[in-house]
Amino acid sequence: MSPTLLPLLQQIVLVLAAIVLFTSFVLLAQARLVAAIHAFAWQGALVAAVTTVVAATGQTHHLYFSALLTLVLKALLIPWMLHRLTRRLALDRHVESLHRPALVIMAAVALVIFSYWLVLPIVQQEMTFTRNIVAISLAVVLIGLLMMVFRQQAVAQVLGFMSMENGLFLAAVSATAGMPLVVELGVAFDVLVAMVLFGVFFFQIRESIDSLDVDRLNRLTETAEEGIVAAGRTTPRAVAGEDG
């Protein structure tokens, strides 16, 4: 379906969805933690905007509420909490670039094409518009997971997780005009609780191994004594872990 045939609001949804996908790539490749948190906030705001526009096209008024919820939670509250966390963990100047950024980006592009290919068989009459958005959402979810695979920093991993959630929400909004309000509230609450738990865990992990590099968590498989010894200084094993 050519965009010229779509009503203007749906065109806006398409543009916004495409930009959501772009923010996913920005999240994936952004080396600075604080900038990545900003990108995540923008993604949340864009998802909220998509929700608003979808609410305006259909007569689904409860979507306005979920848009507001998304905006407050994902674009303001969680980024703010992450900001505070990074400052308290003294990570706000943290720079961690990907090992081979070009290859990771290529993998992400391949995932986008793959998710498009996956969604192709969902043939529903007059639903191509929705299907296309679902492809984008699926790509956002997969890229979030990819980010969790390739990032070593725990906070960056949380960002990946949260952006996966954004992708799921986008799919729900565009495919079925949103979940029932109860479910949505439940999910939002879950995300919030998860965020708090992550925060607590960060401090725990930091206290025990003095780093938020998840590759260091390999050492948890060793015996407790070794782990404690290793925490103090860098053992050859730990160095090997960093290389991998």
Binding site: M1, S2, P3, L14, A17, A18, L21, F22, F25, I105, V109, V112, I113, Y116, T128, F129, N132, I133, A135, I136
Partner: peptide, 16 residues
């Protein structure tokens, strides 16, 4: 990347 995303969003979003 921008140009590539443009291409992909053309393929995914703009062609039914």
């Amino acid at each position: 990347l921008l140009a590539l995303l443009g291409l992909l969003s053309h393929v995914i979003l703009e062609v039914g």
